[in-house]
Amino acid sequence: MILHAAYRIAWKDVVGDFRRRSTLSSMLFFAIAALVVFQAAFEPDRKEAVKLLPGLIWVTVLFTSLVGLGRVFQAEEEDGAFEGLLLAPIPREAVFLGKWWGNLSLTALVELMLLPVMLVLFNVDAWAVLPAMFGVLLLGTLGFTALGVLLAALTQGARGRETLLALLLLPLAVPLLIAGVQATAALLGTGGEIAPWVRLILIFDVVYLSLAPWAFGWLVEE
């Protein structure tokens, strides 16, 4: 029941996005623009590119997801539909899950398209570990988007919301960034062990996935 309601909300968001709001393409092209900026700033040769790649991947994903998170509640805000969503006879946790799944799907899709583009643009021959890299990225995205959607709800109705969202989200994402970059570097053969870093990502995921739905409930309480 809860899961079904959440699924309907997520479906509404994703389909609505494909039809009208096109967050997906904004995110993708923002990411590609960021890649051009990185290339211009660092001009890595092949060896440097392998070393830089983990950091570039995670930084790009982090900033790109800010684009998506700024719009998570946009549809609801425009028409005052958020109250309607809260009035629906479903638990608040279901609303959160639905919003989270919607954002997670879009972010995961962007990552899926972004990774091969990055390998091509930076001339890194790591096609063999591409699925594993995507796996690590997706694992981190689970907790990160949960935290992000929670913060998007938190900054609803705030002045200068997008800046505020970045200011609040980026410091909290530091552990994830460290763990993700180290794990990805391990996959590319430029880092150490992968296991402890994957464990750290898992801790991050478990903490935020268990905290966020309840925190969302307290937040929208009248």
């Binding site: 929670l150 913060l151 705030a158 909290l172 905290l211 925190a215 307290w218």
Partner: peptide, 8 residues
């Protein structure tokens, strides 16, 4: 919002 953020 601030209370929840403090908890996070």
């Amino acid at each position: 919002a601030t209370a929840v953020m403090v908890l996070i």
